[in-house]
């Protein structure tokens, strides 16, 4: 039985203006699992991801790799959870691709030679080694998305948390990204509207709606349940096999 890598118990979070973003979330993620978090706009998907490495700090308990997400554990936890933001212009803030990918490892105080090899390896994995010295503004959107993932891969995380990884991507880049996510041997948590992506990549699906966890189960069960999906402003994935 794989161990629990993330344990979320009774998590509540409200935005500073009082809007409830998450209420009473209970979720366990097993090591090596791929989980899709789906739900309509404003359901709380991104807020949930931001709790995984302590960017947001709600009421309740979030444990990552057995450690409570709290200030003293943050340096360790942030090395374990690779969080990729939806907008690559937020994710890529350093002058060159190299500096961006090296940013995480440098903060983890890796020695110089290890940083160099981690950067090479991470860029190689997303097939962006050729862009090492480029500035982010010169990259295409698809390239920026790939480099964004490399920026966390270089930290050698155990969990990859992706926020809308396929949004705004053309079909070719989307396909490449899905292949990459499939291949990555990490625990994956993907918050998205792209239900076809979830169907291809995730074994388990969680539906969030208005900050509540309303359903969870095997991808094929949840994503073929038309009534459930439509009740939460979602629809059947287009690539769903007819016989499901």
């Amino acid at each position: 039985m794989p161990k629990k890598i993330i344990e979320i118990n009774n998590l509540d979070y409200s935005y500073p203006d009082g809007t409830k973003a998450l209420s009473g979330i209970n979720l366990d993620v097993l090591e090596g699992e791929s989980i899709g978090i789906i739900g309509p706009n404003g359901a709380g998907k991104t807020s949930l991801l931001l709790h995984l490495n302590g960017i947001l700090d709600g009421k309740g308990s979030v444990k990552v790799c057995g450690l409570q997400v709290e200030d003293k554990n943050l340096p360790f936890i942030r090395g374990k959870v690779g969080l990729v933001f939806q907008d690559p212009d937020s994710q890529l803030f350093m002058p060159t691709v190299f500096d961006d990918v090296a940013f995480g490892p440098m903060n983890m105080d890796m020695p110089k030679n290890k940083v160099l090899s981690a950067v090479e390896k991470a860029l190689g994995e997303v097939d962006m080694l050729k862009a090492k010295e480029k500035i982010a503004h010169h990259l295409s959107f698809g390239e920026k998305k790939r480099v964004s993932i490399a920026t966390v891969l270089s930290m050698n995380p155990e969990i990859l948390a992706l926020d809308e990884p396929t949004s705004n991507l053309d079909p070719k880049h989307r396909k490449n990204l899905i292949e990459f996510i499939k291949k990555a041997k990490l625990t994956k948590i993907i918050a998205t509207h792209d239900l076809d992506l979830v169907l291809k990549v995730c074994s388990r699906v969680v539906i969030l709606d208005k900050g509540n966890l309303v359903a969870q189960g095997a991808s094929c069960d949840i994503l073929s349940n038309k009534t459930l999906l439509e009740a939460h402003e979602l629809e059947l994935p287009l690539s769903l096999p007819e016989n499901l």
């Binding site: 969080l83 933001f85 907008d87 937020s90 994710q91 803030f93 940013f103």
Partner: peptide, 10 residues
């Protein structure tokens, strides 16, 4: 959001 992305990477 850039600041949050920076924090997320330590």
């Amino acid at each position: 959001s850039v600041y949050l992305a920076m924090c997320a990477r330590g």
